[in-house]
């Protein structure tokens, strides 16, 4: 275990403790909204925003919140920010809000956010908690980006709505439906395991 330097708290979320590939947190939105890159990125940004803001509030209130009602308090803080994000998306990005549907309010029960509050923000200083939230947010976003890239290219033949595959390519319908999401993520986790296995043997 390395010493907890600010740089470490930030970078651990990106690779070593990646929320999706290692901790398997926040799987529901990960699988549900990644059929296109735009939706995936929107979800990643919304989740990261809620994560960072909640970490900020909760780490600054950590000495005031009694531990017996902490989970309920965390959830209320998170739900407040999610309501904010939801209203914002409805007002300015109606199409995205429509496409993500119930998965915006479901950010409230994203175990990644609640997990970070419980495991980190409620025990650490404001600065460390924000760095941790940023790192986790980046790790979450990167995983979503990769997953949605694979699914959109194979499922629609496009990336960010731009045609990238030749016209002859026949889109794999299965990739944009539920099974494709499960399969792609399963293979991603396997690939992560291969990389990680090689690295630890090398050292």
């Amino acid at each position: 275990m390395k010493k907890a330097t600010p740089a470490y708290e930030f970078s651990k979320g990106i690779w070593k403790e990646n929320p999706i590939l290692v901790q398997l947190l926040g799987m529901c939105p990960t699988l549900a909204v990644t059929s296109t890159v735009i939706n995936g990125v929107a979800m990643a940004l919304a989740t990261s925003f809620v994560l960072i803001m909640s970490s900020l509030i909760i780490s600054s209130l950590r000495k005031i919140i009694p531990s017996s009602v902490r989970i309920a308090s965390f959830i209320v803080v998170i739900a407040t920010f999610v309501t904010l994000v939801d209203s914002f998306l409805k007002a300015y990005f109606y199409d995205i809000s429509k496409a993500l549907g119930p998965f915006i309010p479901l950010i409230i029960v994203n175990c990644l956010i609640l997990g970070r509050q419980e495991a980190f923000a409620s025990k650490n200083t404001v600065k460390m908690s924000i760095l941790d939230a940023f790192g986790m947010g980046v790790g979450f976003s990167l995983s979503l980006l990769v997953l949605s890239t694979v699914r959109e290219i194979l499922g629609f033949g496009t990336w960010f709505g731009i045609q990238v595959m030749p016209d002859l390519f026949n889109p794999w319908m299965v990739m944009i439906m539920a099974p494709g999401a499960f399969l792609t993520l399963g293979i991603m986790i396997g690939a992560y395991g291969i990389f990680k296995g090689k690295k630890s043997k090398g050292v």
């Binding site: 539920a178 099974p179 499960f182 399969l183 399963g186 293979i187 986790i189 396997g190 291969i194 296995g197």
Partner: peptide
Amino acid sequence: IPEPMKGAGITLIVSGIMALSFS
């Protein structure tokens, strides 16, 4: 099962096949 796929990886792939049959 190959080492890197153990645990979550294989479970997700099995779920994918299950979702495929449920579809």
